[in-house]
């Protein structure tokens, strides 16, 4: 009995510490635009949400998708088109982009989830390449030019999003809602079943779970949230281009997630922040960005196998000596 109470005390202690860290993190994000360039921060938030959505699939379900650019970039196109060409308000554009990504996720997931491991990754990559070529050809994406000059408009007809702080806090709100949704999913019974599928698929089946349906649901949720990130990004940068649907973008989100630590809530956020910062720093230095990120990635894989945050958790846990914390 004494053991369990001690463990419970530790658990509530670490839970309190976590909440304190979350509160500090949110406070820092609220204060950030007074110290940093808002567009840079918003880019970070969009990619962080994208990486978190990706992590729902890789980290918590154990599925490595190589096609997530489809949802991110696709949603950006849908949102940009709806806002610019149809004159929709920003919230409706984001909603459309997100819903579009969900539909794309349903289609891609339907074909991919029946395969395992590398075949799963290959199917997602193949379908994402098909979507890329569709975007190159389709008139509404305007080919190489992309959809430029997307107006940010007024949120709910009230808030003028052309004001840097207004758009920043809108993006921050979307980011927090998205991450909160993922947190809820991960800590729900559904999330527990996803984790059991990640750990041992055939065992999950023998306990009565139709693994295929759970995987598809996780895939669609991940795609939807990736779409939310992509649609938001289109409003931030006021354009949607082919860059966001390329396979390099699918690779980048894998990099961010692995770098930060898969299967942790904070890992992908840290990973995305790091990669975006790096890209911005290197862009002005003249040093080739891809080589630098590749090198950093290699170092991380060799030194911190669990990713930065994963490694920190592992160190903390071995020093405390209790069970794994998700």
């Amino acid at each position: 009995m004494a053991e369990t109470t001690l463990q419970e005390a530790r658990a509530t202690g670490s839970a309190r510490l976590e909440w304190a860290l979350v509160a500090i993190g949110i406070a820092a994000l609220i204060a950030a635009p007074f110290f940093f360039y808002p567009v840079f921060l918003m880019k970070m938030l969009c990619f962080a949400l994208f990486a978190c959505a990706f992590n729902l699939l890789l980290g918590y379900t154990g599925l490595l998708s190589f096609g997530h650019a489809t949802f991110f970039g696709g949603a950006a196109y849908f949102c940009a088109h709806a806002v610019k060409v149809w004159g929709w308000p920003p919230e409706a554009g984001i909603l459309l982009g997100t819903a579009g990504a969900a539909v794309l996720g349903l289609v891609m997931g339907f074909f991919a989830i029946r395969r395992q491991g590398i075949y799963f990754a290959m199917i997602t990559l193949a379908l994402a390449q098909m979507f890329y070529f569709f975007c190159v050809q389709a008139p509404f994406t305007r080919g190489e030019d992309g959809i430029q000059g997307v107006p940010r408009g007024h949120l709910f007809g009230l808030l003028d999003l052309s004001q840097p702080h207004n758009i920043y806090y809108t993006v921050l709100g979307i980011f927090l809602i998205g991450v909160f949704a993922i947190w809820r999913i991960v800590n729900s019974p559904f999330g527990m079943i996803l984790k059991s599928i990640r750990e041992n698929e055939s065992r999950a089946i023998s306990l009565g779970y139709s693994v295929a349906n759970y995987k598809l649901a996780a895939f669609v949720m991940s795609a939807t949230l990736a779409g939310l990130a992509g649609a938001t990004k289109a409003l931030v940068f006021q354009f949607a281009t082919l860059t966001d649907v390329t396979w390099q973008m699918s690779g980048e989100v894998i990099l961010m997630t692995l770098l930060g630590g898969i299967g942790t809530m904070v890992g992908p956020i840290v990973g995305a922040g790091l990669v975006v910062t790096l890209q911005n720093t290197l862009a002005t230095s003249g040093f080739p960005v891809t080589i630098a990120t590749g090198l950093i990635f290699m170092v991380c894989v060799l030194v911190f196998r669990r990713g930065i945050v994963g490694e920190i958790y592992a160190r903390l846990l071995t020093s405390v000596g209790t069970g794994k914390k998700e």
């Binding site: 019974p189 527990m192 984790k195 059991s196 750990e199 041992n200 055939s202 065992r203 306990l207 779970y209």
Partner: peptide, 28 residues
């Protein structure tokens, strides 16, 4: 033997007990 290696012993068993429950955290 096929446990869910990364989950706690308790959660390994809880996965089996989850079926038939709703989606809320209290169900967990």
């Amino acid at each position: 033997m096929r446990p869910f290696p990364g989950l706690s012993v308790l959660d390994n068993v809880a996965v089996g007990a989850l079926f038939g429950h709703g989606g809320g955290e209290s169900e967990l």
